[in-house]
Nucleic acid binder design. Structure first.
Lengths: 201, 201
DNA sequence: TCTAAATTATACCAGTTGGTATAATTTGCT
DNA sequence: AGCAAATTATACCAACTGGTATAATTTAGA
């Protein structure tokens, strides 16, 4: 983490990303207008276009920012644990409360971006797909680490755990978000927890 | 199924819904313009507004149509089976191939609508939430029926089965749609199948 | 077949969209 | 402090947005 001499423009660029990220996640790409961006930042169009090529570039940067926040939050909690089972349990523990976590209040960035962009916006679609790959690899690596350390049963299939974990989280998150209740989310996360605990040797 | 004397307007209304439903599911509510609607139908704005109050009303009708198609398809396959386990297995069997089913090619209507509308469009949001409730009740009823008939273990929790089944389907569908591959979908549906088979007495 | 009513097309509206020159203002280096 | 360069604001653009009167055309019953 070296502090490079940030120019005004670099700082403004970052400021724009931080202020608009929530708007993009809330309203989607098509639903967010340049006007929304100026309102969210207090800047003018000229200023925004001085730092970004177009709306696309802001949206792409905003997605990275949103995804990064989630990743950093999860990562911190994972590193705080040592045992692989504990580490995997971070996912149900976090998403169980997703409706209360500030930057998840407007929904999961991956889910939001994936469902909007899959048929309409190739660049955003690719970002969402890459985010899923990254997440998948992370989970798989935690499982493998657990197996190497003798903490997780040797016959465990990392790819299976990752696919089921991610599907449960995303599917349950969607339901919680749109129904406004977390009954199903709680059930799904309870189930996921048991599944993870069942991996213990 | 009584054939009421359908007026021209009623037929046109239905025609508009059928032709625009796919567009709404593909581009979303905000991403679909009146222009898209005229292009999809070959009709003019005047004609569309002669049959609908506004874009909202078309979108809401289109959602019902989209959801209905999925429901009808699933229902037909469920009724073709008798044993409760077989009936529940319809879900993984169908969604395993979701990328190839014509009216699911633009994604799951519930998922698409839920993620776009949850923060932006109360009416659509409610429709998505109601669709989830309907689906949940259907699964729960199948499980209960199976328990009454002695086909499903007595200690099964219908709400749990419904929540896990729906989360797995929606989460895995999303991944398949955005990555363009069905590896994770297949894994998740395999898992779901085993879970359902495990309910057998 | 005629005709009143129902339906569809035309032509328009004001407001908004994403985007861009250009002018005004800040920066930050010497 | 002075000044060139980088940054931000202003004012504008054509295209498109959802929506609406009104005119033209169909429809279908007598």
């Amino acid at each position: 983490m070296h502090n490079e001499p940030t120019s005004k423009a670099e700082r403004t660029r970052q400021f724009i990303i931080e202020k608009t990220a929530a708007v993009f996640n809330e309203k989607g790409y098509a639903g967010t207008s340049l006007n929304d961006l100026t309102r969210a930042t207090g800047l003018t169009k000229g200023s925004i276009y001085g730092n970004f090529e177009n709306k696309d570039e802001v949206a792409l940067a905003a997605f990275d920012y949103n995804f990064n926040r989630v990743t950093a939050y999860i990562k911190a909690r994972i590193l705080a644990a040592d045992h692989s089972i504990e580490r995997l349990l971070v996912y149900p523990a976090v998403y169980r409360n997703c409706l209360k976590i500030p930057f998840l209040q407007t929904g999961c960035p991956i889910l939001n971006t994936a469902t909007e962009a899959d048929d309409t916006h190739p660049l955003l679609k690719e970002k969402a797909a890459n985010a899923l790959s990254f997440w998948k690899k992370s989970v798989e690596n935690q499982v493998k680490r657990g197996m190497e350390r003798g903490e997780i049963k040797a016959d465990t299939n990392p790819a299976q755990i990752a696919a089921v974990l991610m599907s449960l989280v995303e599917g349950a998150f969607m339901q919680a978000k749109v129904t406004g209740r977390n009954t199903e989310l709680r059930i799904a996360m309870d189930f996921l927890e048991k599944m993870i605990l069942d991996l213990k040797v």
